[in-house]
């Protein structure tokens, strides 16, 4: 008899993979806005998987940063570029076939490796993802990478402003 969390896992995993498939290869629409919307749904169902893994803080960050900020950026660019013209372009069948074969081979290798790995011993000391220890480790052990990360964000911001100037000099 499967537990309720297991049923939840299977449901969320199916949703994540289904929405992910519709993100990259939607058979009904070639509009990039549709792809972006399905990417939002993928990310939200993945936040559900994070909750199942007791990573509550990361689930919140996933929704706030990815489904919020990053996807708004994507939609802005799609609207800015005005890209509905992919309708008239067909993906070549050869590209699709060869790509699918290559990707299926990679997936096969990975899944074979996973299924042959020794199963983890069932233990009761699984991580219970409270936010307090995460904040502690973030601001004690990982303080320097955290500060470097803020520098990276500053550099990215300046770079984006520079890149989006009209005349690149």
């Amino acid at each position: 008899m499967p537990e309720f969390t297991d049923l939840l896992f299977y449901g969320l995993a199916a949703l994540t993979l289904g929405f992910g498939f519709l993100t990259v290869a939607n058979p009904f629409s070639r509009n990039p806005v549709t792809n972006a919307m399905f990417l939002v749904l993928t990310i939200i169902s993945m936040a559900g998987l994070f909750v199942l893994l007791h990573a509550f803080f990361l689930a919140a960050i996933q929704v706030l940063v990815y489904a919020g900020a990053v996807m708004v950026l994507f939609l802005f660019v799609i609207m800015l570029l005005d890209l509905p013209e992919e309708n008239r372009r067909q993906i070549k069948t050869l590209t699709l076939g060869l790509g699918t074969i290559a990707v299926a081979a990679i997936a096969g290798i990975f899944i074979k490796a996973i299924s042959h790995a020794a199963p983890l011993a069932a233990s009761d000391r699984w991580l219970d993802g409270e936010t307090k220890p995460l904040g502690k480790i973030l601001f004690e052990t990982y303080l320097l990478p955290f500060e470097i990360l803020s520098l990276l964000l500053l550099v990215a911001m300046v770079g984006v402003i520079l890149l989006s100037k009209k005349d690149l000099k």
Binding site: T16, L17, G20, F21, T23, V24, A25, P32, F74, V77, I78, L81, L83, E86, R89, I91, T95, L96, G99, T100, A102, V103, A104, I106, A107, F110, I111, I114
Partner: peptide
């Protein structure tokens, strides 16, 4: 792994940069 491969498939087959 399956999600990674889906993303990879998108990178290989799609022709739109976004």
């Amino acid at each position: 792994v399956l999600l990674f491969c889906l993303g990879f498939l998108g990178v290989i087959t799609r022709r739109n940069l976004v």
